[in-house]
Design a protein around this nucleic acid. Structure first.
Lengths: 376, 376
DNA sequence: CTGTTAGCGCCTTCAG
DNA sequence: CTGAAGGCGCTAACAG
């Protein structure tokens, strides 16, 4: 494979000139053309490894996620990629599988390869350690939960308000014994969602009884198990909020297994799925703006590349409740409508300045909730 | 960040000794211990970029796929990763998005980074060009379809027999006007599946009429559109085979939109989904061994690293028909059974030697079909 | 077994 | 605007 010396020789110039011609240095048009021709002639591809060694920086960005099978991450990845590509960065995905060891390995790779930056969904708030990256000047942005090891830019969905809106909606529909299936206590998202669920119960017309909470693991089997446990209670719930799409799938299976079906028992879940509108009745969900989270994370990363020493930012993007049949008690016995009716119920927003920076100036209107949740 | 010279100094040895100690060269135990201690002391991480430049080879492997949102690829990715990790290779995922340009970019990255190897699901049989990689000695394995640009190792599912088995099953259930929604003519997989579909129709008791075929694009919208087109025909089909999971989702939506539901109209689809057993009735599918395909592809890649000059292999892994309610005409009006009943109908196998190599010696029994399809 | 040395391919000073 | 030269960090060849 041809290297820069071969090209220089073929073009009758010095290697430095070739380098300049390729990287936008000042070169006379005539020489630039000769270099160009020689490159094509020889099929020259600059060796990124050598370039990386010299420049101490690559143009590949790592996205480390915890479960490639979760649609949330795939949407997230698209967001990251779209922004990165606009800045001529490539994105590689690393599937840490919720395993801190695997994650550490990929962090190591990112470090040792001097990657341009890392967007990470930390496998663990406590164990995930990104300080080595930061020490070496590799910018890191966290999605969903911030690792304790360092203060870094973070982007999350407004989980608390999303859960609140969904629970509020179930209450409004007349459900009275609402349970929540959430993730492990170690997950910040799980706790946020639980918090919103509980807040809705503390309000005026909510039932006095302490709502049931089942802790599972954000996986299909966990949701299945948790739902069965809830149904086995002496006083089983009449509606359930599931805080993750995979668990929702398991929960639905558990219902089917007992011949139960929404909205007889109300069901609402977090996260988007490819199947939420394929099941009957369609599943009410709290939409997480995964793509936007990805975009924002990548944008923060690019900003930080430029200005490494500014204070870390915390971005909270709004969620949106998509009401469908599984939680519409009124629709209980009537045939499903021909078209989906989707209602936007909740639109908490983050602060206007953040939005402006993200190119969403339209959202500057209501920021009361935002201040509250952003400060949390 | 500490480099190898710092470590050498701290340990009182030469950099070469440090390198040897780290990479399994022969070093006296006493010095090895000093090096070890110095590494920890300084938090030394070998710089992979420098190592890559020197060794002209990295230990990162690229998996280039065309649609990260398709569960087929996520399962595939797990297969690749599991094998790679066993050989101390990291895997990065590149989402080419079915876009030959993006794909070319990632191929470029893989080349310029001297990656250890590439597993690719080619975006296009004609446009995808991997010769540059091969020229530079980077092994490439294709999944599903082999690019025309070079003869390389390939792993595919036995699409033809899978489609045959599904169609056969629909015929056996008594459906008589079976249509097929398949991918574009440019896709080898789409054509293979169509071929199996048509073969089933040529047999003894099959209806004489020429079966309907709709060509779509392997995406949700395409399936939706195609199903609607089929239903608008003067003589609409009484069953449909959809050759991809995303299109199946669209097709199902189209049925729902018209108040139709399986098995009144029979439905079977290719590919696994997270929702095939959540819809009612559950969806009959042709299971693609995505995980195994990934494993095999990675194994071929490792083999080729060792022996670059052996002849390219072509591996065809068996598919499996999972019969569920959507194609069971008898179950038409009876309530859904409490537990899933899954029937394995078809088990065409590839040749015994291939299986043996893949650690599946149990499959050596029937290979009549295998020889036929492997030679294709 | 160990140390010295050269060079992987590129970019980026520094002179001119 | 151009060329010469050094070095990024590591490892493989060679000599001891």
């Amino acid at each position: 494979m041809a290297n820069i010396y071969d090209v220089a020789k073929a073009a009758g110039v010095s290697p430095a000139t070739v380098s300049r011609a390729l990287n936008g240095g000042s070169v006379s048009p005539e020489r630039a053309a000769r270099v160009q021709a020689a490159c094509e002639e020889l099929g020259f591809r600059p060796n990124r490894v050598a370039r990386g060694l010299r420049r101490q920086r690559s143009d590949v960005l790592a996205l480390i996620i915890s479960d490639i099978e979760n649609p949330f991450f795939t949407a997230l990845a698209r967001g990251v990629e779209d922004v990165a590509r606009a800045s001529n960065l490539s994105v590689v995905l690393c599937n840490a599988d919720d395993n801190p060891e695997k994650e550490a390995e990929y962090l190591d790779v990112a470090l040792a390869e001097h990657m341009a930056g890392v967007v990470i969904f930390p496998a663990s708030v406590t164990e995930t350690d990104v300080t080595a990256l930061l020490d070496r000047g590799v910018p890191v942005v966290a999605v969903d939960r911030a690792p304790e090891s360092a203060a870094i830019d973070t982007v999350t969905a407004d989980d608390e308000n999303g859960a609140y809106a969904a629970t509020r909606h179930l209450l409004d529909e007349g459900y009275r014994r609402i349970a929540c299936i959430t993730g492990s206590r170690g997950s910040a998202a799980a706790m946020e969602r639980l918090r919103g669920f509980l807040r809705a119960h503390r309000e005026g017309d909510a039932p006095r009884r302490r709502p049931r909470v089942a802790y599972a693991d954000f996986r299909v089997r966990g949701g299945y198990q948790a739902m069965n446990d809830l149904l086995d209670l002496p006083e089983p719930p009449d509606a359930v909020l599931v805080t993750n799409n995979l668990m929702a799938s398991g929960a639905l299976e558990a219902l089917h297994g007992r011949g139960l079906r929404p909205p007889g028992i109300g069901l609402a879940s977090f996260g988007d799925t490819h199947w939420s509108h394929l099941v009957e009745p369609a599943l009410t969900t709290v939409h997480q703006p995964a793509y936007e989270i990805g975009r924002s994370a990548a944008e923060l990363l690019l900003q930080r590349r430029e200005a490494p020493d500014t204070a870390p930012q915390r971005l909270i993007l709004p969620t949106r409740l998509e009401v469908r049949g599984s939680s519409r008690r009124a629709a209980d016995s009537s045939p499903p409508p021909a078209r989906k009716v989707e209602t936007r119920v909740s639109h908490p927003e983050t602060g206007p300045r953040q939005w402006a920076r993200l190119g969403r100036p339209d959202a500057a209107a209501d920021s009361a909730t935002a201040a509250g949740s952003a400060a949390r």
